[in-house]
Design a protein around this nucleic acid. Structure first.
Lengths: 333, 333
DNA sequence: CCTTCTCGTGAGAGCGCTCCCACGTCTATC
DNA sequence: GATAGACGTGGGAGCGCTCTCACGAGAAGG
């Protein structure tokens, strides 16, 4: 990077071998004798040689990059504004540990999304992880480049790593019901988000099963949305004894709203979230939530890509687990 | 990516021009007549041609990648576990909008950090943004590759974009003092973190200025640490009327700890944080905090790199601003 | 009408590496 | 002792692109 870096040519010359032999030693491929090996290694050390990854990629056709595509349809759901993406990042990085592959981040905005997708699909990489990309864009991407894995429920053909959102939402309501709560409202995410759709379905299934009334409100997956929704819900149904917020950020807002009306959490109104993100531990009281194994899912998607085997329609499912804290009653210690 | 993609050669052949002319049109460089221009463009469209960025980078020597290096010295401060990094990401992505440059993320662990640094320094990129990299590693990186910008206070020679941590911490205490609080404790970050060191210095400066006693405790920049620190502080100094937590996550823990002792926030103990991250809006009551302009700083660092002008010792300073919410008293609406 | 300048165009040399293939040399086999 | 096989080694083509340079045609000037 500074001045002109030594090339493999320089190494070969210094070691008195051919470029081919130097390459073999550097990639520790078989077919080089011990004496030459050490001479090359010495030359590498002496020159401080580091292979040029760009040239390597071009010559070998092997790729060293995985793309992480984050959809940015809404400012509040952008990668910087939502804790979700940090976890995706961590999971992907974990799977990449030790493998010489780099993670590249892309944020695709609503406008111009299709063009961006096409350009990225054409780019030569190991593959792409789709975080919160809508099904239509996902299938477009898939048909253009094949090597993609979605982290959210998506078009049937697109390979995906999915959480059991429906079961998870059902379990959340079941937990509340088991605690004796009977007026259980839900705050839902945006309709364009497939996870939000599934969680809503789970809530409705539970409500039907337990013979409760469906008390729903939109909250847009944001803290502000959750706050406003809880306030509206409480005004219209003052007898609510529990709220299921389909993401933690909304649950945090809900707790604040409930408290602001003079009610106590969990004594008067129990609150359960979904995700188990930062937000869950920052609330007061700490939030009972359904843990989405985001890191594990992102890691699985990464490994799938690395292995090269992403068959059309592939589905890998992850269970969602209850994490009891204090917002639904004393947490078991 | 799927099958063999068309190359510029194919485009040139189809358009009946040379590779050089095709390249000119594709990069819309001057020196191509209108008739040929449109013929090439048509060929591009017909073949669905997309340039191979790897080949481009190799041939031109121009780079299309910026590295974001996140140090991972401690599990609780890892990119996935701390809200800070999401904001860095957002800032960098914002600055990259419209520029055809990709962001690459690296997490460097304590062990093997030096080697990773060397390898990355050798890699051909536009440059690197150092988030929370220790001064010694930063200067090593800098001496190896030159094109780096640190986001935290660092070695003198290394270019950096810095927040006014000292002044910010001072202002936080000043705010508390202005509210009539006199027993103001602080919960500090880890000693290896340069931001933590500066914030501590700011606290001490304020304490001296206002003639208060220095009541400090470590909290490791984590929620758990903040919780434990507040509890310890309250036990040893039951008369505390304010806590300055040098990051929001610790402040969130502190609020929970204070509440658990039966005290009220802000009536009995006022709490002020630092950062203005997710955590600040999730606490109950919402957290008064010092806003660190992380997004702006990351964007500035990115632009510096893009412009190519990172002079040794460069310093770009950012002010830290008070964001009054409810944890220090009724927020001015 | 010849020179000079301009400008569009294509040939071709790389960028730094990988990898196939041909060429020894050395040992095993009949 | 001739032949086959194994193995280490280097030559060189080529990955897909950019970019310099030389060339030829047309416009401008004396």
């Amino acid at each position: 990077m500074i001045g002109s870096r030594p090339t493999i040519e320089d190494v070969a010359r210094l070691a008195g071998v051919s470029r081919a032999t130097a390459s073999r030693v550097i990639n520790n491929a078989p077919g080089a004798s011990e004496p030459l090996r050490s001479r090359v290694q010495q030359a590498v050390a002496q020159l401080g040689y580091q292979p040029n990854e760009t040239a390597r990629a071009l010559a070998s056709g092997r790729q060293r990059t995985i793309d992480l595509i984050a959809a940015d349809y809404h400012p509040d759901l952008s990668p910087g504004a939502h804790p979700y993406y940090s976890r995706v990042l961590t999971g992907a990085m974990t799977a990449l540990e030790g493998v010489n592959v780099q993670l590249r981040i892309h944020v695709v905005a609503r406008k111009g999304a299709a063009e961006r997708i096409d350009a990225m699909a054409a780019d030569t990489t190991v593959g792409a992880i789709l975080a919160n990309v809508t099904p239509d864009l996902a299938s477009r991407f898939y048909s253009r480049c094949r090597k993609v894995v979605s982290l959210v429920p998506t078009a049937a053909s697109v390979p995906a790593v999915e959480a059991e959102n429906i079961n998870g939402a059902y379990a959340a309501v079941e937990h509340l019901h088991g605690l004796g709560r009977r007026r259980i409202a839900a705050i839902h995410g945006p309709g364009f988000n497939t996870c939000a759709i599934d969680r809503r379905a789970g809530y409705q299934k539970a409500v039907n099963t337990f013979g409760l009334s469906d008390i729903s409100h939109g909250g847009g997956f944001t803290r502000e949305g959750g706050y406003a929704a809880a306030l509206a819900l409480l005004t219209e149904h003052p007898d609510l004894d529990a709220i299921f917020a389909t993401c933690d950020l909304m649950a945090a807002g809900a707790i604040q709203a409930i408290t602001s009306t003079g009610r106590r959490v969990p004594e008067d109104v129990a609150v359960i979230g979904f995700d188990d993100s930062f937000a869950a531990i920052c609330t007061n009281p700490p939030l009972t939530t359904m843990r989405l194994p985001t890191e594990e899912m992102a890691a699985a998607a990464t490994r799938l890509l690395l292995a090269g085997g992403v068959a059309s329609g592939l589905r890998q499912r992850f269970a969602v687990q209850l994490v009891p804290r204090e917002s639904t009653g004393r947490a078991p210690k």
